[in-house]
Design a protein around this nucleic acid. Structure first.
Lengths: 220, 220, 220, 220
DNA sequence: GATGAATGAGAATTCATTCAT
DNA sequence: GATGAATGAATTCTCATTCAT
């Protein structure tokens, strides 16, 4: 989709542009297909078809299915992590506001996009593809956890949060967001009323605010 | 074949027992194998081998792989749900204590047993086996959610909890437990320090207590 | 084909017998197909079809194509080597007669049977399947060379042969037989007059007799 | 692309040379790659890479893989055959010396060069590419055999050799040389002591001299 | 002439399921 | 009831060949 900015007719070397766009198109198609079927059950043929190329072309850009998957994760998750890290680095306001921004970011950039399928994919395949699990653990989980831990520590240091077990609290913060992502992948189709992510996020933030408030002090 | 050593005529109880025990043995083996490889990647051959029967025998008791999986879920989860429901029905003390008991029950009866693999299995396969998803949604999730909703409503009614968005709060309660189960299935092997479920549960209960405390009032 | 010796109707457990016969039937079919197309180009589908089984059945008996090939070699070559070794062990007459018997054995048991395709197969695939090459080198070539070396040394010791460079002479003895095998696999179809193995063997033995005769003495 | 560094206008000799040299460079690369992997397993991509051109360029000079292979054979073998025929035509000394020269020629110009891989290639692929087999049979084998037959007949006519079965004897002469070539392609890598071609050639010539010597007369 | 992106037919292997014994 | 031999559909990956640039 990034290629829309140039008109097709202006002597554009369509082919050259194609080559540069291909990997992204394929990764994009792969995200969709993997999201729908899971990694193992996804057929590369379907990925190719959706990307508008042949099976063989996939292998021009990715050496195998697993590497294609890694590329999908990289493309869909890492930019958001980068953004989150920049956000924390430049943060100046109260720590709870940072937390709020981060969770909102997750809710809007991951949960409600096709990237929301990735947690399910990882959970489903980690056991069978240890390589994948390690890659995700190192590149995503560690970084995300460190980020949240930093926010918590910042809050405690500034007297905004009561002292907490950081590791456990990071998990408490993440869990509902993750669960929402998994829910969407697994049961969303079965429910009459779709999961109200906005309400859940509000309730989560509300609960967190109370849980993190310093003893006796006001809510953060 | 171990049953041959008992004479057939003396009431042959061992053999009879065996025959009746078969389904359970198979389900048990299946839980292990599914837990290790995931539903799709699990080979019925391995299930049969672990149960000490032949592949063909599996089909005497279960019409196909999917039904076997349902049986696994039924066997591993439903008894715990029954117990939880009975527990709530007979509860008399403070609602938070009920909540505490339920979560502790989950932590000890599911999280740390082979049944802990089931959430991952469901998450992984729900997309490809809508039947399975529906079954689990109806038989497990709905009941579990209703149970927790009942506890929350009881607490609010008794003035122990502040009024909350019940649906969202149920999810907040469940999420960390679920995430622990998924974590074990996916990343436990990669971590030097294993996830400290006990600490997480404590932190979670602590946070919940604060989050549910009536405004201005004491912790529940 | 070995099953013809028992009448089909005599309550024979056809199935059991089948299981025992299968590997040989498959190996037999494989020898033919490999011989016709070469190892790499042979399609397991064709092997299965010729053996009268399905593709899957192949994998019940052989873990992969390469092992099937090894089985083919084992079945087709090793019994003849065994026989040759026994022959030498029990030999009492003149050494040249032993040599003559061995070469005749090769000409009749290998060259003119489907086993004659094996040298070509090995030559063709040794480069791409080092495993295979090693297997053949250890199990066949080494043994065959040792056998012929023993005959030569016996002849020299008994004064029947002049002293020779044993290693080179072994190769001189083997080469024409091998070349005949390769010829049949490669060019036989192109020739109007087929290669006269009998004449070649006679000429070879004649030449060998003269070449091995002790200086000044009579032909061996 | 290395040609860009020369100015286009100054007779651009390098570029012109390059253009004419292309086919030879490609054939040369192909000989190496075919020799290493065999015809079927060789990838034209590797040939192209080694020749320093693109895959597409191959098809400017050769219509397909098979024709490229024929070109390789032509280039590597035919000049040597030409030389051998000229050698025989101009021969004046004893016939055995001619034979000796021819075999030595083979040992030095084929066996120890990259061309030594060709016999293996032909043997391996003759079955699958009858066209190739016919080409090689007509262009190489027939000519080589005729050459040696002529030497033998010359020797017999001059009383240097005893009368022999010419066709068989030609094969006896060729076989050890051929076998050496095949050996190098197949098992050389497995042996601790490499095949001593010089010793084999010496033993072969020695044996031939004895085998061809006229009855009762001196060695030729 | 030269390039290299794109194609798609083709083959090994796996495993849920069947059914003759 | 129990067995396990047999099946064959399904899927990843490779590479000779083409052709727009």
């Amino acid at each position: 989709m990034p290629e829309e900015d140039a008109p097709e007719d202006s002597a554009a070397p369509r082919w050259r542009r194609r080559k540069e766009a291909r990997p992204r198109e394929i990764v994009d198609a792969a995200l969709t297909v993997f999201g729908e079927r899971g990694f193992a059950a996804a057929r590369l043929e379907d990925v190719a078809a959706r990307a508008g190329v042949s099976k063989g072309t996939l292998y021009l850009y990715f050496p195998n299915k697993e590497e294609l998957f890694k590329a999908v994760v990289r493309e869909a998750i890492l930019p958001n992590l980068d953004m989150a890290e920049r956000l924390l680095a430049g943060a100046q306001g109260p720590s709870f506001a940072v937390l709020e921004t981060l969770l909102t970011l997750f809710a809007t950039r991951i949960l409600t996009t096709r990237a929301g399928a990735i947690p399910k994919l990882i959970v489903a395949e980690a056991g069978n593809f240890p390589d994948l699990a390690r890659f995700y653990y190192e590149e995503v989980i560690r970084r995300a956890f460190a980020l949240l831990a930093a926010v918590l520590e910042r809050g405690v240091a500034r007297g905004e949060f009561r002292p907490v077990d950081v590791d456990s609290t990071v998990r408490l913060i993440v869990a509902p967001m993750l669960m929402s992502a998994l829910w969407r992948s697994s049961f969303a189709a079965l429910e009459e009323r779709p999961l109200d992510v906005r309400a859940l996020l509000a309730a989560h933030l509300d609960a967190l605010r109370r849980a993190l408030a310093p003893e006796g002090g006001p809510s953060p």
